[in-house]
Nucleic acid binder design. Structure first.
Lengths: 220, 220
DNA sequence: TTGCAATTCAAACACTTGTATGAAACTATC
DNA sequence: GATAGTTTCATACAAGTGTTTGAATTGCAA
């Protein structure tokens, strides 16, 4: 067990460097220099570079997933097993958006790391992401309970589009800011969440039961 | 000028390999083996590996962009300088979706290459993508002309969400298929286009002038 | 203190990568 | 058919990578 100090110094340094410069051009030697530890320490403590990356990503994403499920569960319990679709969608995209957007200077290292992870896509992370399907199924289930007269296909497409808007906005936040000359304010996270939830809700409820969406322009 | 044969053999082989295995683990030696040319040929004909990748990507994306602008221009001319928003959106996401989705076995190498390019994100491609903003501005302009009483912010968000749904669906097509147990048919490209356009249209027209969207479920 | 395990360290290893070289083989022009 | 320019080729280069090794050091228990 021992000090554990080296181990966490490596984790911190790696997260910082990956967040700043991406996975592509950060080597083990960069990491150990930043952490002030010996080169061999990484392999000693983590086994390999990939396992280090995987541990970083897993730690962060189970945190996000736990947060998502916590919100979802709370909403469903409050609604007696059936939550409003907007609340479900908010539980799905809210934690991720809140974790990755917001004023850059006060954006956490963890957040910037997760943005990188969603932009670059390196093998160990891809492998982990593939196991995320079970997690998404839980949301699909909740959405089906919320909109029982909606077909499965529509549910999945709605889920897909909700994630699409959230992730793409994170990935391309810089471009959207530039394209809109700063008119789209990505630092106002709750506005972004509201916009995504709003559109996804429309996608899922259009055509039937539209009256069920009173907070259509609840954005903000 | 000469035969040009080696040059195009390299391009073809590179595109094929990148499409199949991604940028990450295809080396120059793999490419020249596939193309049956000498290792030095790549640097002789293209200067460097990055320039080879860039040429591949530029070729494909100017083709897509040209197609998009062609559709857009035709629509605006027919409408006397103002095209319906659905048609604009269709011009924006249609070519990309048609280029990248469709039955896998008949999916072109070019299509699979572009999917990779949108998944992996390697430096030379990133550099090129950054220059895509001017191209998007043209669409923002057309959208503004189509929806003159919509704020710029809403226009940009709508544009962002439309691209989000299209690209994410391409990137994660495999996952969506798995998640939905095949219920979401990504081979039916026109259905996908219709869904994306439909949702993006709602996002852009919700709240006002909703009557202007008669073909809401014009999907297919 | 002694002994033993856990940890650190410098160094080297093994391998892959993209690129450069210079001679050889072509190709076309005169 | 000699010549100049282009293209091909085998080979070497230089640099960087993650990983391993085995000895040195540390920390802790007996």
């Amino acid at each position: 067990m021992a000090s554990d100090h080296t181990r966490s110094a490596i984790l911190a340094a790696a997260e910082r460097l990956y967040a700043d410069r991406g996975f592509g051009d950060v080597t083990l030697r960069d990491i150990v220099a930043e952490a002030n530890v010996n080169l061999a320490a990484v392999n000693y403590h983590f086994g390999s570079k990939d396992e280090l990356i995987a541990e970083l990503f897993v730690t962060r994403s189970i945190a996000t997933n736990r947060e998502r499920l916590r919100e979802l569960k709370a909403a469903e319990e409050q609604g007696g097993g059936r939550a409003p679709i907007e609340v479900i969608l908010r539980a799905l995209v809210g934690p991720t958006l809140r974790g990755c957007l917001g004023p850059e200077n006060q954006r956490s290292t963890a957040a910037r790391f997760m943005i990188r992870a969603s932009i670059e896509s390196v093998p160990p992370i891809r492998r982990i992401k593939n196991r995320e399907i079970d997690h998404l199924r839980k949301f699909a289930g909740a959405m089906r309970r919320s909109l029982p007269d909606r077909s499965d296909v529509d549910i999945y497409w709605g889920l897909n589009f909700a994630l699409a808007m959230a992730h793409h906005t994170i990935r391309e936040s810089e471009r959207l800011t530039k394209l809109s000359d700063g008119k789209c304010d990505l630092d106002d996270v709750e506005d972004v969440v509201a916009r995504v939830v709003n559109v996804a809700t429309m996608a899922l409820t259009a055509g039937k039961a539209e009256a069920k969406v009173p907070s259509r322009i609840a954005a903000r």
